[in-house]
Amino acid sequence: MIELPRSFADEIVEHARQERPNEACGLIAAKEGVPVRLIRMRNADQSPVTFRLDPKEQLRAFDEMDEQGWDLFAIYHSHTQTDAYPSPTDRRLAFYPEAAYLIVSLADPDGPVIRGFRILDHEVTEEDVRVG
């Protein structure tokens, strides 16, 4: 179960819509398991089908989390045309077993869908996302 504050879920959708047609991406930091900060990140790929955090921006975000005593709670990104499910690329490039992977789909522009997963060694396990 991934408990996501409503404001964070809303911001993920808003970010995804703003970045469209490109994929949006970002991080959610938590303190003692409770999400405290959503960090919008630049998609260095500037692509509708892939994303990658800018390496220096990533380091700054991770350092900030360390300094604040926060943990990486989730990594989010958008799929603009396809389901909110990890693609082969998502599975291959999932290097953070400690984080939840949140994917927002804009395939139905009027009904964005956020789903959550753990990805370990390319294996996907879905976790319910509870927004509230």
């Binding site: 991406c25 990658r52 990533q58 990594i75 693609s87 690329t89 291959r92």
Partner: peptide
């Protein structure tokens, strides 16, 4: 890297 995406 933190990376991925719907395509290749």
């Amino acid at each position: 890297a933190v990376a991925g995406g719907s395509g290749s």
